[in-house]
Design a protein around this nucleic acid. Structure first.
Lengths: 210, 210
DNA sequence: ACCTGAACACCGTTCAAGT
DNA sequence: ACCTGAACACCGTTCAAGT
């Protein structure tokens, strides 16, 4: 029996990333963490990109998709958005590695599938629902990533802020991050639905009337 | 007179990043591009993080903030959002470096200042306008970053997609990226305004009535 | 099949030395 | 003040060799 397996490698790597940051994830560090030589890893993983993919997969398995609540499409979209946000926030240091090694996993696709499904239940027509799903998923993923990026934004010296009264006020009393996401998600869903529903209604009504 | 200056270094670095990607930006590469030894750079730049900051600053100077059009706050918010999107798209490979070296520049702050200013003209009260500005700026920056990230997303094998009809349809006929941003920005601004204006109205009306 | 040490081609950066 | 080559401490990864 082998002393190593993919899950142990993923666990060790993810622990490194979570506790010591993206820079701490080196082949050497993962190997010594597992009490094994660096080159052993290459029997399980083709290269570092594959290692990162392994971590992303494990992170995703730890955060299974929520069961549909049946509370209606709007509420379910909000729940799924919250799940995506939590998935991103669970391993903030993983974001840089994903970008660096261009890692995409099938789990993203199943999320997208369900996301589109929900919008198809909104009453918008087929094409509008697809456009709504595409735009809104990008917005939500981008917003959640931006939240974790801003976490290690160090506020500039007060000197500079003295010329920028609005920013000074915002940086001294920032809105709570949770409420910002609440506002964003509600506004986005309602906004996208309204814009597209209005477009449909106009397109649908104009022809018969004219 | 010196053979080197900050602007030449920034230009050489930015050219490398734009034409050969983030990985191509090494101290050695920038130096040889300028026909100089690697260590010369350290007389102008403390370390690689400072080099990246230099590139970001140059990129930002090339994309000056648009003059206020005076067409009303909604239109001006859209214009400013488009400017931000273009700034991000102008140097897509710079995003990874910014994240990697945690680079924030004062130019971000002047953007934020104006962004808040516009929302203060929306008719929302002071706190609501600030919340709107914070949430919407994160959404827009995140969305634009997501757009460029998705640029080098390679669609998965059709095998996998056969179980995901919605995603298969989306990947065979994706919406045009430009219209996706148009939809997103309009929906976001209207959505945020409506949610907060409704909240204000309710809070303002409920008390007298009860 | 699984694991290993030595080595290679790269990094960013320090240092002592040149003009 | 400005520039330089040599060297150091890291990377990811190849290779030939062990069990």
């Amino acid at each position: 029996m082998a002393t190593l397996d993919l899950d142990a490698i993923a666990a060790a790597g993810l622990a490194l990333v979570d506790h010591r940051g993206a820079d701490a994830l080196t082949m050497r560090a993962v190997a010594t963490e597992l009490g094994v030589s660096t080159m052993s890893l290459y029997h399980y993983v083709e290269n570092k990109a594959a290692l990162v993919e392994l971590l992303v997969d494990k992170a995703h398995r730890e955060q299974p998709l929520p069961a549909p609540s049946g509370e209606g499409w709007r509420e379910e979209v909000r729940e799924l958005a919250g799940w995506m946000r939590n998935s991103i926030r669970a391993h903030p240091a993983l974001l840089r590695l994903r970008l660096e090694y261009n890692v995409y996993t099938p789990s993203m696709l199943t999320f997208g599938e369900r996301w589109i499904n929900l919008w198809q239940q909104s009453g918008l027509d087929f094409d509008a629902a697809n456009r709504a799903a595409a735009a809104s998923s990008m917005a939500i993923i981008g917003f959640a990533k931006e939240e974790v990026s801003l976490r290690d934004f160090k506020p500039p010296d007060p000197e500079l802020l003295s010329w920028l009264p609005n920013m000074r006020h915002l940086s001294t009393s920032p809105p709570e991050p949770g409420t910002s996401f609440e506002l964003f998600i509600r506004a986005l869903i309602d906004g996208i639905f309204d814009v597209l529903a209005r477009g449909q209604a106009i397109a649908g009504d104009a022809a018969p009337i004219a």
